[in-house]
Design a protein around this nucleic acid. Structure first.
Lengths: 203, 203
DNA sequence: AACGAAACCTACCGGTCTACAGGTAACCGA
DNA sequence: TCGGTTACCTGTAGACCGGTAGGTTTCGTT
């Protein structure tokens, strides 16, 4: 029968695409999206620029694939996050500067006019803020220990994560990103290391 | 004939340069630095691209002028800032999205390899963190009400400002940048139980 | 009026970029 | 083994890009 062969071809193609996306992530990290040339990405996977266009017909299509990869990446832990796990996430990120740099560069570019990633980031941040608010609500209830609501705290949480990333990327030696983020979590209320469950009292 | 003429030549040249820098700020806001072409900047001030090169011999030279303009801009209030004045600054920024967008785009690009603004931002953030720490120390002393030192709080303060800017630029309607920043300031210390954001009583 | 510098311009070079066209070799199912 | 799809390639169009060379006009100074 056929399906072994058919799968082989399909899988191989899929792998090649993944390879290309990975290379694109690298190149975007190094040069930004506008600065990233198809030729540079192609060379990294041993293709000509035109060979790459066989897999992704336009540069924007490649970017879309990159962004989808990202979505897939952090779609997993979306369900049940807790605040202390966020600290672990930041720690994990600190060991993968490449990815951070890719999306920090993209975020920076995306605020410019007509950038192909603008809509993506806009929607993503709306969703991330909502997600963070949900996490905070689960953890603290309707009011954080400092009196803020989860909805008003979520943008700050996101802002701190992003802002710290830029400072850290520019000067890793001077900025302890995970440490600073833990400091911020402590600012939110109680010590996140401490197991101090349901102390919140919805007023 | 020189009362007007002598001044005129020098002043006019200086004004032209300022005009160009202003146009460059706009174009960079719209397209980023890499995406900003000399021709686009030139057109905005009614010059050809080569005419622009008469004033700034290279593209990088123009960027340097842009960054110097920024330095000059916020060098004024550097001496005596207070935390509540920071909130006013954020409010002021919220009325000038152009400038914010210019430097947010530049910051994002600057984390990429060999970007001409990288060193500038690296040094700038080091200085801004120190400056913020000094402000916090003046305001709170060696320990903030939540137990953090000024030096550990400063990166968070800067991160929140930057991070909020990105969220706000992407979706101004969904993000109340000045409000969120005031929330953060409240997180830092003063009247934690008070809910009314209008009150600003240190004691 | 004459001179020199400043303020622009036209013309152009070499390079890079995305994308299209069209060809070819390998491979896979029938 | 044959036919078609897949996976590439070369060639090239067309557009910008930053920067150089060298001219010309304008203008302040003398």
């Amino acid at each position: 029968m056929s399906y072994r062969g058919a799968m082989n071809a399909r899988v191989r193609s899929e792998e090649r695409r993944a390879e290309i996306v990975r290379a694109a992530l690298e190149v975007i990290a190094e040069r930004g999206y506008r600065g990233a040339s198809l030729a540079a990405v192609a060379e990294r996977v041993g293709l000509t620029q035109q060979g790459l266009l066989h897999y992704f017909p336009t540069k924007d299509a490649l970017l879309v694939a990159v962004l989808e990869e990202r979505d897939q990446w952090d779609a997993v832990p979306d369900t049940r996050w807790r605040v202390d796990l966020l600290a672990s996430l930041v720690e994990y990120n600190a060991m993968r500067p490449g990815i951070i740099q890719t999306f920090s560069a993209l975020l920076g570019e995306s605020v410019t006019e007509g950038h192909p990633a603008r809509q993506y980031f806009t929607e993503r941040y709306t969703q991330v803020r909502a997600s963070m608010a949900a996490v905070l609500r689960t953890e603290y209830g309707e009011r954080l220990p400092n009196g803020l609501t989860p909805e008003r705290t979520a943008p700050l949480l996101v802002a701190v994560m992003d802002g710290l990333q830029y400072q850290w990327l520019l000067d890793p030696q001077s900025v302890d990103m995970p440490g600073a983020f833990r400091d911020f979590l402590r600012l939110l209320g109680e010590d996140p290391h401490r197991e101090d469950p349901d102390r919140e009292d919805p007023d």
